[in-house]
Design a protein around this nucleic acid. Structure first.
Length: 154
DNA sequence: GCCAACGTTGGC
DNA sequence: GCCAACGTTGGC
């Protein structure tokens, strides 16, 4: 069992979108970074815990709890010429990009990035490190516990 | 819109 | 393999 922080632009897929989706489950499409892809492909397992993070928005921060709900499979958007995420170098035989399904557990209060930065117990989170841009980052069990405690009942 | 930081591309 | 140029991310 591992834990992850996954960034999503709420304009594209918000925690509300996830919680109102069928089975509260959405495909995590559009990852176009090899390191993030490799986390999904090589390290994630069904049932892993996910901190659902809103990025590139007025108030970035953790907006909910989710879980990994599938193994890795090819990201359909890479094959779609109309998609923003289309990749001409990807083929059905040799996909480059993958998705996993993510299932919402609950929407929480927003634990804003600004608040996270004030908390010493979260200072080591990968997402808070200078220059960190990865859309998927590992979270330690201790960090997971701390964040859940901060979001308890909210 | 700005810009720091990181990632990718491609010439050599 | 190096590295300059360019592209992207994402907070502010």
């Amino acid at each position: 069992m591992q834990y992850w922080l996954m960034k999503s632009e709420p304009d594209e897929v918000s925690i509300d979108d996830v919680m109102s989706a069928k089975d509260k489950t959405v495909p995590w499409f559009g990852v176009r970074n090899y390191q993030a892809r490799n986390f999904m492909r090589d390290a994630m397992q069904e049932g892993d815990g996910v901190l659902f993070y809103h990025s590139s928005c007025p108030e970035p921060g953790i907006a909910g709890i989710a879980e990994v709900a599938s193994g890795p499979y090819p990201d359909a958007t890479q094959f779609d010429p109309k998609s923003h995420y289309y990749d001409a170098k990807a083929t059905q035989e040799q996909p480059r990009w993958i998705s996993v399904d993510v299932k919402g557990v609950r929407k929480t209060r927003l634990l804003s990035l600004a608040e996270m930065r004030t908390l010493p117990q979260l200072a080591d989170m990968v997402v808070l490190q200078k220059g960190s841009r990865l859309s998927i980052t590992p979270v330690t069990a201790a960090q997971w516990k701390q964040v859940l405690a901060l979001l308890k009942g909210a």
